[in-house]
């Protein structure tokens, strides 16, 4: 009886002030609960503090340039004029390249791991794909710089420029480093996350859905494409969004292969910068409130964008999980 009472008290989350009144009857319990709650609120506090501190440090730049910061292409530390457009564009362009390559690739891997792989292969193959996410960004950047970039310069960009040079995307000198290299590195970095979320939501599809389609005389692929993937679609979309979130914010590997240009251009071979790489490259050399403020404002923009993207992605994941558990057949 008493234990049941204590348990009930501890499990009732609201009305914390009532427990003050009962002090010290179950003091240990609520001290502990309060302690854990404080730790949990630490996370919330960090997120809020991040927004505020970044805004405060970016303030000189925010007030000086206003909204034009996002639309200006100037970046001139000598004259103290800063605009973020090329960096924003670089982030969006490289992430777009990454999504174009990574989404179909991840879907293939996720379908293979969840639906096609024989038992003995499933666990090791999943492990290897997850390992891809464990390679330190800076190591991937090193590999990208010394192995991938030379290969992109010649033959990839040579060939594309020579044969498809009439398309604006493939014009300009083949630097190797640039939008294309950055996008491809981001592909590698976002693929494991997209794959993992998509694979889990495919695995969560009830077998009755597969059997229903198979019993109609569908082939294996028709079963996957017409019954399984539609059922798992919100989880798959969530995976893509989370993968995008990762691509937008990845720093070191991109910094090492993107070539430190600053331009808005359709030419994929051109050197560029993302918001993250711009910060990483210049922050330690920056001096003066405005210059530092401009870089911190870049970080603030990046923070805001990834925040929105991640919140949408996570809510979709939660929604999918609770939805499949209530819809489970």
């Amino acid at each position: 009886m008493r234990q049941a009472l204590i348990k009930e008290q501890a499990q009732t989350p609201g009305k914390w002030w009532r427990r003050w009144l009962r002090w010290p009857a179950s003091s240990g319990d609520w001290v502990f609960q309060t302690l854990t709650l404080l730790a949990a609120l630490c996370l919330v506090g960090l997120l809020v503090a991040m927004a505020l501190y970044l805004l405060a440090e970016a303030w000189p730049s925010v007030t000086l340039f206003g909204p034009a910061f996002l639309t200006s292409t100037a970046w001139d530390p000598v004259r103290g004029v800063f605009g973020a457009l090329p960096a924003v564009y670089g982030t969006l362009a490289t992430s777009a390249i990454a999504m174009i390559v990574a989404v179909p690739l991840s879907m293939g891997v996720a379908i293979f791991l969840a639906e096609l792989a024989p038992d003995w292969l499933r666990a090791p193959a999943s492990f290897l794909v997850e390992m891809l996410a464990a390679i330190p960004s800076v190591v991937l950047g090193l590999w990208g710089l010394f192995v991938m970039v030379p290969l992109i310069r010649d033959p990839v960009e040579q060939w594309l420029g020579g044969n498809l040079g009439f398309i604006p995307l493939f014009q300009g000198p083949p630097f190797g480093v640039g939008f294309l290299a950055g996008g491809l590195i981001l592909t590698v970095m976002s693929l494991p996350l997209i794959t993992a979320v998509a694979r889990d939501s495919i695995l969560a599809v009830p077998n009755s859905q597969r059997e229903a389609m198979l019993a109609l005389g569908a082939t294996h692929w028709e079963t996957i494409s017409r019954a399984v993937l539609p059922y798992a679609r919100s989880g798959i979309i969530a995976g893509v969004i989370l993968g995008l979130g990762r691509a937008l914010g990845e720093t070191m590997a991109v910094t090492m292969v993107i070539g430190n240009g600053y331009q808005v251009t359709l030419q994929l071979f051109a050197p560029a910068n993302t918001m993250a790489s711009k910060i990483a490259t210049e922050f330690n050399e920056a001096s003066g409130d405005v210059y530092i403020g401009a870089l911190v404002e870049l970080a603030l923009v990046l923070f805001a964008v990834t925040l929105v993207v991640n919140i949408i992605g996570r809510l979709l994941v939660y929604w999918t999980v609770s939805d499949t558990s209530t819809r489970g057949q």
């Binding site: 997120l47 914010g249 720093t251 993207v309 991640n310």
Partner: peptide, 8 residues
């Protein structure tokens, strides 16, 4: 928070 870029 786990998705906030480490550079930020």
């Amino acid at each position: 928070l786990a998705g906030v870029p480490s550079v930020v």
